[in-house]
Design a protein around this nucleic acid. Structure first.
Length: 316
DNA sequence: TAGGCCATCTGGTCCT
DNA sequence: AGGACCAGATGGCCTA
């Protein structure tokens, strides 16, 4: 219990002694000092003497491996381990968020001030890949109503409005006629147009207004997307570079489980096996949800050669 | 005030 | 033993 007494003292100490850390990290560090000791541990150390008594006592012995006694040294090791694990987990999640930010940057609508939520970013990314693959395969144009419909499949209404605004598609070409009474309005200060798009997808989370000055106003070309992705990766990547084969042996659209109408099935988990060998960053531990699609054509991207000489794209 | 989103902690599992 | 990953729990912040 002495670990809990004087918590404020610990906080003060942690907050004042680590000038190089920012306030948030300091608070976190102080919090770690406190919570590194779980309630169970605290009880254990409190009941250390009781536990010893229990060894010789008359109580019926429990089955299973005998729980090791929580000595102070052991307790200290556990606390240190827990604090380190918390720090690792934080940094892991920060890495994940960085990657998500990089993904947001290559989406057709990107706003520094109005970020897409994580789930919406992933949904839009999926739709975007799907839409671009349709463009590549069908020779469609990456703009207009059809493209927008593909992008907005399954997205929430505000996100759909955001995308519509970024694509500069006005209500005339959208679904206002069908869904006028339900539509949300999204103003673009850049174009002066008013966008309205009724998403077939999800209910509306609160997103507020967007800062149009930070938006991509047109869907970037596939080349631009790949290029910016590579640049972004080069400039901002915080994860260690992967030295193996960079190119996933994928059919560009072969990993979409499509519904009857040709849209991606949002409910299915997709079968995909990463190209890297086991032990090189591949997911582990919870079974393999992945499988490999057979590549058909290999399309090298010249502009990627400088920074990523081995980077290639596989398409059908 | 409810609901959505997020960061963080935590314990479990698997792997090295 | 320790690290990576994951999912559940929790509390804070924000907006309608």
């Amino acid at each position: 219990m002495s670990d809990i007494v004087g918590v404020h003292g610990w906080m003060d100490e942690a907050l004042s002694s680590q000038d190089e850390m920012n306030e948030r990290d300091q608070r976190q560090s102080a919090y770690d000092m406190i919570t590194g000791l779980s309630h169970e541990d605290q009880c254990s150390i409190d009941g250390e003497e009781d536990e010893e008594e229990e060894d010789d006592g008359e109580k019926p012995k429990k089955r299973g491996p005998k729980k090791k006694k929580m000595t102070k040294a052991r307790l200290e090791r556990f606390r240190v381990r827990r604090v380190k694990a918390n720090a690792r987990e934080r940094s892991r999640m920060h890495g994940l968020n960085d990657a998500l930010d990089n993904l947001r940057r290559v989406m057709p609508c990107y706003s520094k001030t109005q970020k897409l939520s994580k789930i919406e970013t992933l949904r839009l990314a999926r739709n975007y890949i799907w839409a671009l693959s349709e463009v590549l395969e069908g020779g469609q144009v990456a703009e207009g109503k059809g493209f927008l419909e593909m992008l907005c499949k399954g997205l929430s209404q505000p996100t759909s409005n955001l995308v519509a605004g970024c694509l500069q598609i006005g209500p005339q070409t959208m679904f206002l006629d069908k869904h006028e009474e339900k539509s949300h309005i999204c103003d673009s200060s850049l174009t002066g147009q008013t966008f309205s798009y009724q998403s077939p997808g999800l209910p509306s989370p609160p997103y507020g207004n967007i800062d149009a000055h930070h938006l991509h106003l047109k869907p970037p070309s596939f080349k631009t997307v790949v290029e910016s992705s590579l640049i972004s990766h080069t400039l901002n990547c915080t994860t260690p570079p992967y030295d193996g084969a960079l190119t996933p042996p994928l059919s560009i659209s072969g990993n979409f489980s499509l519904k009857q109408d040709g849209s991606p099935d949002m409910d299915k988990s997709y079968a995909f096996r990463p190209p890297y060998p086991l032990g090189l960053g591949a997911p582990h531990g919870h079974g393999s949800h992945f499988q490999t699609a057979v590549p058909r054509y290999e399309i090298p991207i010249e502009m990627a050669y400088e920074s990523y000489p081995h980077h290639t794209i596989f398409a059908e």
